[in-house]
Nucleic acid binder design. Structure first.
Lengths: 229, 229
DNA sequence: CCAAAAGTGTTACAAGTACACCCATGA
DNA sequence: TCATGGGTGTACTTGTAACACTTTTGG
């Protein structure tokens, strides 16, 4: 079969679940659609894939376009390919998810959207979404909840310098549990992934908290060794 | 943007890494191409996605077409979207992987292929592949190696009745380790996922081995609880 | 009675969990 | 001096790993 003979009518879109933590809440970047279909519903940042870009490049471009961030953690999530996802015609969406440090953020409003903003999980429960974007978000949340357990991706949500309480808060927020402070610190020390700095965060009239930084900021690392079952 | 105005020239393909275990070796189903491009190289079963089928349906169809199996474990793996994957034009491939019980197998030879067959990991190392199919296989192997640790997917590689030695062999083959027999049996018993049968497998002049079956044959189950880090 | 794989428990070690008090600061 | 979050160690429980012998069968 020659490629030019293929008469396949599928549009390839790409959507990104961009996550951050602000005020101890996990938040998703969403836009409110101003055009049909699904006008006035919320949707993920995304677009049609430019055929001259690889999927990873296309994802980077969208992230840059909507957040002005170009070095975040960005990973493919899943490809959504049900029929009738999009009323306009057959469309599959390659979904990605990104984790960004809120302090690095610089939102770029787009003409296409009248609202672009961060919404917490409790906001999301009440909202109506375009396409299957609620499902995409749910799968992204499941993924990060799972992945934070055995990798160091929590890094991506923090600035260069952070306190151990801040790091712990990231875990608690994502896993929706509380963690014992002493056990947490013991484990982090064992993992040998952070270095203490000689700087302290002053917070009102409390004892200042020591700042730490990650040894390897960018690289995703598997922390847990495999056991056989 | 109206869908009909989109002039995007990307072909959506779908490839499946079909895995089984035979003679204590993990094997992949491959075909040798008889047409250009990549003539005489090995490739995964797959094809162009029919726009009238969802991705999951398309994957099922291909699995059925090439193995005549319709109830196997089949899960989306990853979507490969680099430029120049296919010399003929821009193509992305939504890859799936499947685990099947070799004893259920009934290969359907296709005109398109002059050889369709099972190849072990040691075979694969020496072979030349079409497209990026070597990369796809590697990612499927990584996935199953990881997933066998915390789910019951090993089920899918065994027939209804099996002995504990056979189950253990599946784990040993996939994880490429040896496991202590007593510890393995203890763990399997704790997981409460198998039931003993009053049937025994006779094997020459050795003591017969008791047959077991899985409690829930079809459902994928998460076996390991999440810890916080 | 021999060869071959099936089957079975206990001990030692590592990892995870639970838990309570002192410290440093600014108001 | 007091209120607040930062910072620390130890005992207990659970899970994992190491290890050797008896059983059943057919030839």
């Amino acid at each position: 079969m020659n490629h030019s003979e293929i008469n396949q009518n599928i549009v390839v879109a790409l959507d990104i679940v961009i996550l951050t933590i602000k005020d101890n809440l996990l938040k998703v970047l969403l836009t409110k659609r101003t055009i049909e279909p699904y006008i006035h519903r919320y949707s993920l940042p995304g677009g049609i894939v430019d055929e001259k870009l690889s999927l990873d490049e296309a994802a980077k471009n969208i992230l840059k376009r909507d957040t002005n961030i170009s070095d975040a953690f960005l990973e493919q999530l899943y490809t959504f390919g049900d029929l009738n996802r999009d009323k306009r015609g057959r469309t599959i969406s390659v979904a990605y998810y990104a984790l960004i440090d809120y302090s690095k953020l610089n939102l770029i409003p787009s003409k296409k959207y009248d609202e672009i903003g961060w919404y917490s999980l409790s906001d999301i429960k009440k909202m109506k979404f375009a396409f299957d974007h609620d499902k995409i978000i749910q799968i992204a949340l499941d993924r990060i909840k799972n992945k934070i357990e055995y990798t160091n991706i929590a890094f991506q949500l923090l600035p260069e310098k952070f306190t151990l309480a801040e790091l712990q808060q990231i875990y608690e927020t994502i896993l929706e549990t509380s963690i014992d402070k002493r056990n947490f610190r013991k484990k982090i020390a064992e993992l040998d992934m952070v270095v203490e700095l000689n700087e302290y965060k002053k917070m009102g009239r409390m004892r200042p908290a020591q700042y730490y930084k990650f040894k390897e900021r960018t690289k995703e690392t598997i922390l847990k060794a495999n056991k056989w079952v």
